[in-house]
Design a protein around this nucleic acid. Structure first.
Lengths: 411, 411
DNA sequence: CAAGTTTTGTGTTCCTCCCGCTCAAACCAC
DNA sequence: GTGGTTTGAGCGGGAGGAACACAAAACTTG
């Protein structure tokens, strides 16, 4: 129909919301900065910035500190920063081998994180939900104050319908049709949104905001564990697809005469580059646990030829698939997460050679392949970022009320 | 960094621009409608619509006709429509076998179209540019009035850098590094933008605005001729990638032991489903012309088993590749253009079976595969749409000046 | 160290633009 | 016709940012 967000008519109220959002977003993404920096970043005048920052301060969402001396003439401009604890997100992550919880404040401040092993094998969803929530009590910072929590974000290793957080399938968890969003919302009993997303979709967001892809708007993130998932940033926005299922690149068919995948199809990319494939090439059982993977990498570093060859071959297969994806997406950066991030130091040359062999010159010339910077925490931090999104998009609605109450009280 | 378009501060001027844009866009995409329809569509008040429509009328961009009687009580609301000839786009298309030119007015009104054969084989770019421009004289409507042309759009069967219209490579045209945008701009001598894009990226836009995918925001368009290209609509926006090279799905590697592609790589999808592959399967030379293709389809319809098998096999190969793309993009619709659109009636079952075999249940359940509705004209019409985009995004800047001049003259 | 320069915060006024309201016009139904 | 309904016309008001003038706080220079 039309670019979303452009559909409705604008009014002065919309302008204020957009401008508050621009300020909060700038501070959230680029960190504390002076008012005059905000003037240049947003294009608003000093008058407008003053009023809007004043409003954010009144709402308790921002604070101003003494200006930092930078040795240039002119009146110093006070530094504006977000109050991390004013609005926090609770983030959960359900990985193949671990569960994690975190509390993240505005500006991306990590206020607390705790992680625990998840034994492999099927486990009913309600038990996992209980485990997640009990993680909150093990946070070094303690449970967050409920009234400051704006939303809950959840990263899942599975196919997730973004609308309501239904986990359609999660082979590694043994889940099918689990209404995770609803379960978690009921268990928490907070009247705030619970946003569930695929872990790779969140991983690319985290790497974009806080990791290897800061400032880069076209990013392909490929995450490998037992399964292989992808997250794509298109023009700075996460690509969700029609229902949030986009990015299932692990199930792109690459070999018509290949192995049967856990998804039922033949020759999925995942069967060639997933953890199982690497383990098999190293002479280990496909379903060996994460410790076995550590062994393979350790062996390769120690000079084991079989392990090195397994890594090299996996890297080549990864590279040729990445080549197709680079042709498809024309990203400026490919970020490798999970085991691919660990593979990269050992196999970057093999990866790049095969990638180069299967890409057109133009997209090849502008892409870089790098390992993820946030490691295993990327999906968790991405979950926090999406949870905070509502505050970034509309700071006034959530905090305007509080500010108005404060005004009434003072009058 | 952040969703584009949200970066800068808003002001009242921005509001006006956005609202004018919302009105013009609605009329352009959904056709003429009453003022009260515009009220509901845009969410603006009657007062605002009145003023804004009045301004558009004053600028000559819109007109109001007597209300259409629809038998309901209440004062009738006059029908607002865009004046097609007030702002027109000149569109060109450079295909493998044809050149075309069109003039398209606001609202998507086709004001003139002319098409000519392009003999295969290399031809210097400047000669093609001359051919294109001379097509303008063969339009049934005659050359458009230069002052009404807002931009020129060009669809090319090649890899195009969108920033400046440089054609990086176009194997079917024998081009490498041709600055088509600059050449055409110089040849025309008009001081308006020349926008050059890949034909598939434009095809998906056209099918979205005027064809099979109207109202659908997540679309995968796959265009097959000698080469295979793709255009993707993500949340209503064309996916361009970092430089405009996105969508080169014809060069995704699908068979490590396959044929060498014209791009130099091994086993590109294009080698299996392009026109050459279909011809070869039908027992004809890979580089036979378009007439040979017509023969294959005719033979299949006449019951020729070899032709039918060739089409069926090509359909299966197409379907399995589409499966991977459906997993990747989670589109609501796959639109098949070029020879794939002609293939679809003969092979839709084969296509769907293989697609289904290689997709996850969730994305599979929500996708439809349909042939393109606009046929060979899709890229040309898409070129017109992108050329008109500047008027849609900001009607005031282009026409405000004219309106102000009119005001001054009347004062 | 005092005066000038530069940059930025403060506060007031002004302008733009949309909303809300009232009234009138144009349609339908009876 | 008379009343109900929907919509256009026009006017006043409010919200919000821009523009401007002035003051404050740093650096620079002699």
């Amino acid at each position: 129909m039309r670019p979303s967000g452009m559909d409705l008519g604008q009014r002065s109220e919309t302008v204020r919301r957009a401008n508050l959002s621009a300020i909060v977003r700038t501070l959230h993404e680029e960190g504390p900065q002076s008012r005059s920096d905000l003037v240049t970043r947003t294009g608003l005048t000093r008058s407008a910035i003053r009023v809007l920052v004043g409003e954010l301060k009144a709402a308790g969402l921002a604070s101003e500190d003494r200006a930092v001396r930078h040795g240039r003439p002119g009146r110093p401009s006070p530094e504006v920063s977000l109050v991390a604890r004013a609005a926090v997100a609770v983030a959960f992550s359900i990985g193949v081998d671990t569960l994690a919880a975190a509390v993240v404040g505005m500006g991306g401040t990590l206020l607390g994180l705790s992680r625990t092993d998840r034994p492999r094998g099927h486990k009913v969803a309600s038990a996992v939900v209980d485990d997640l929530v009990s993680l909150l009590d093990h946070l070094p910072s303690g449970r967050p104050e409920p009234e400051t929590v704006v939303a809950v974000g959840v990263a899942v290793a599975g196919v997730v319908r973004s609308r309501d957080g239904l986990v359609e399938t999660a082979p590694n968890l043994g889940w099918t049709g689990v209404p995770l969003g609803a379960l978690l919302a009921a268990r928490l009993g907070w009247s705030i949104p619970v946003v569930v997303r695929n872990e790779s979709d969140l991983g690319v967001l985290a790497e974009h905001r806080r990791g290897a892809a800061v400032g880069i708007d076209d990013v392909l993130y490929v995450h490998g564990e037992v399964g292989v998932g992808g997250g794509v940033l298109v023009d700075g926005r996460p690509m969700a697809g029609a229902a949030g299922y986009a990015g299932e690149i692990g199930h792109v068919p690459v070999d018509a005469s290949g192995l049967r995948c856990r998804c039922g199809a033949i020759g999925c990319w995942e069967t060639q580059i997933g953890a199982g494939a690497l383990l098999a090439r190293a002479g280990l059982p496909r379903d060996a646990g994460p410790d076995a993977l550590d062994d393979v990498f350790a062996a390769a570093e120690a000079g084991d030829v079989v392990a090195q060859a397994a890594i090299e071959t996996t890297g080549r297969t990864l590279g040729s698939g990445l080549g197709g994806l680079v042709n498809t997406f024309n990203p400026r950066m490919v970020v490798l997460g999970g085991i691919f991030g660990r593979l990269h130091p050992h196999a970057h040359q093999a990866i790049w050679e095969e990638l180069a062999r299967h890409t057109l010159p133009a997209p090849r010339a502008m892409v870089r392949v790098v390992p993820a910077k946030l490691g295993v925490d990327a999906p968790l931090l991405g979950a926090a970022e999406v949870a905070l999104e509502s505050v970034l998009a509309d700071p006034a609605t959530r905090f305007g009320h509080r500010a108005r109450v404060a005004q009434l009280a003072s009058a």
